Amino acid sequence: MSAYEKNEERLRALWQELMSDEENEKSGPLENNGTSDEYQPSSNDSDSSESCEPPPRKKQTRKEIGEVSLSENIANRPIINERGSYEWYPADGKALKTFSFTEESSGFQSRLYGLYNKEAVDFFRLFVNNDILDLIVLETNRYASQCVQKDSLPHSRIQKWTPTDRDEIEKLLGIIIWMGLCPFPSMQSYWKKNTIYPNCLPSIISRNRFQVLLKMLHFNNNENLTEDRLQKLSPLIEKLRESFQQPIIPSEYVCIDETLVPFRGRLKFRQYIANKRHKFGIKLFKLCLEYGYTYDFKVYCGKSKDENVSVPSKVVMDLMEKLLDQGRTLCTDNYYKSVNVKRI
């Protein structure tokens, strides 16, 4: 007999022994009359095998399930049918934690209407406020002074550096926005005196000064190095998020979705999304209000080191941190549907 046949025979014997033990348990205790080992059933215990079986469990109806108190959680009361398996019923919602939206002053704050003349530059200053401009001035001057100390060329352009101020940085940002609206063949074309390039930039700022400012433009101290991939932009991003949230109070319905900022430069967390119009860029998660207003945003820099929390759950928790337990309704697509998000 081979080893396979011996193993098969052993398993068959174990199975027969197991089945015989189950039959003995169902037959109940045996009565011995002292004369024979054979079991002689009497009239009183004719139904002993049936009496030893546990009573069947009562199947709960939907009506009984609906009579649960508000303080009792239905999920902690398993519903078992007669066959001993679980059954699922439609949730009645009585155990859910509900909040009513009571914010009466939602929307754009009316006190801001009297502070501005409602021109384009006023809306720009509403978001790019003095705190952001002061940050850019401080870090730009600091980086320029560091470059002056390191540069050993006596006739380089950086050696003639003069500290910048808030007005000059505001002009720099305005020129950059205007260049995006009026593209010219090259950077030098904006300062050419040829009549084919009509512009007023030479009367605002010189070309050399603009190029030096653009080169020295900084938003964080390079001496404070961290593991954050956005360490160059972190202070600016935090102040922009604060300025976006200041003039408006969210209404009842908010939405979280992602967007892609076109970018084809060298960047470690640059994303590629095939179904987008611009396939390469920087991915942003945005918390938007009615009419498309961006209330908050988060730059995606790759997967975090915390493996216990998924990316959609972390995005929802970070963007909704200040709006939880206030009765608001969050609208998302199926990418953000997870157990952790549903527990919020």
Score class of each variant (00 low, 15 high):
Pro198Asp: 08
Arg57Tyr: 12
Leu126Met: 13
Arg166Pro: 05
Pro29Tyr: 06
Cys288Trp: 09
Asp257Trp: 06
Thr332Lys: 06
Ala95Cys: 04
Lys283Cys: 02
Phe124His: 09
Lys279Asn: 01
Tyr291Glu: 12
Ser85His: 07
Glu72Met: 01
Asn33Thr: 08
Ser156Asp: 11
Ala91Thr: 01
Val316Asp: 01
Ile169Arg: 00
Ala144Gly: 10
Asp122Asn: 14
Asn81Phe: 09
Lys118Trp: 07
Lys298Asn: 07
Thr162Asn: 07
Met187Val: 07
Ala75Ser: 07
Tyr335Pro: 01
Lys192Met: 09
Pro202Phe: 12
Ser152Thr: 13
Glu38Thr: 11
Pro185Val: 01
Leu267Trp: 12
Asp47His: 10
Glu103Asn: 15
Ile204Met: 14
Tyr272Val: 09
Ile256Val: 14
Tyr293Gln: 07
Ile80Pro: 02
Ile80Phe: 09
Gly28Ala: 11
Gly292Lys: 00
Asp325Trp: 03
Thr140Leu: 06
Tyr293Ser: 01
Leu287His: 04
Asp122Phe: 02
Ala3Asn: 13
Thr329Arg: 05
Ser106Cys: 10
Asn340Ile: 00
Ala13Arg: 13
Asn275Val: 14
Ser105Tyr: 00
Tyr89Ala: 00
Ser100Glu: 15
Tyr86His: 14
Leu14Ser: 03
Gln211Phe: 09
Glu72Ser: 11
Arg328Ser: 12
Arg209His: 06
Glu5Trp: 03
